[in-house]
């Protein structure tokens, strides 16, 4: 698994560091919004970063950002939040990579799939924590909002990705 696809190691460290910082900052920003949103609903802004990293750098780097973002959540918001972040982030990463490599789906399609897998990963983790399958009570609302937020993050990724790719192809 080769992390750096570029000629410059410094360039790779810089761009990956910026993207991880962006993912962490967006996650924190989102926590502020979530106070005004219904129970459990999040926009998933960090999804933009992971999708752009997967598309413009490579899959291992996107996985690295996903994992380190969860470590950031673990350090700032505690064990449960960290585990939940991982349980959402890993399935979302997996489906994002699968769709990038194996399908011609649009950024919006990929982003919606990632958001849906993210909430189901978290819901099943929550079912495990509470010992009750009825935790899926939260599923319909989360599913509808995941599709909506997936549309938004997918559209943003579609705008950013070509620009970013153009910039970092010279590294």
């Amino acid at each position: 698994m080769k992390l750096n696809p570029f000629k410059s190691a410094a360039g790779y460290v810089a761009i990956t560091g910026i993207m991880l910082a962006l993912a962490a900052a967006l996650t924190t920003l989102e926590s502020l919004f979530s106070a005004f949103l219904p129970a459990g609903v999040r926009i998933g802004l960090a999804n933009i970063v992971v999708l752009c990293a997967a598309e413009c750098i490579n899959a291992p780097t996107a996985l690295l950002i996903t994992l380190l973002k969860s470590v950031f959540v673990l350090l700032t918001r505690g064990f449960t939040a960290g585990v939940m972040s991982l349980c959402g982030g890993l399935p979302a990463f997996a489906v994002t990579i699968f769709m990038l490599k194996k399908t011609s789906a649009s950024y919006i399609g990929i982003s919606v799939s990632g958001a849906v897998l993210h909430i189901f990963g978290q819901l099943f983790a929550a079912c495990f924590f509470t010992g009750s399958i009825y935790t899926l009570y939260y599923a319909p609302l989360l599913l509808v909002t995941a599709v909506a937020s997936g549309f938004f993050t997918g559209a943003v990724s579609g705008r950013i990705s070509p620009l970013l790719k153009n910039r970092i192809s010279r590294l």
């Binding site: 011609s104 919006i108 599709v147 579609g158």
Partner: peptide, 23 residues
């Protein structure tokens, strides 16, 4: 770099319909 693939991801594809149906 597979830049030529990325521009085509700006529009909806048949696989997007599959995603919508699954959702």
């Amino acid at each position: 770099m597979k830049a030529q693939v990325s521009s085509s991801r700006r529009t909806f594809k048949p696989s997007d319909i599959v995603i919508a149906v699954i959702a």
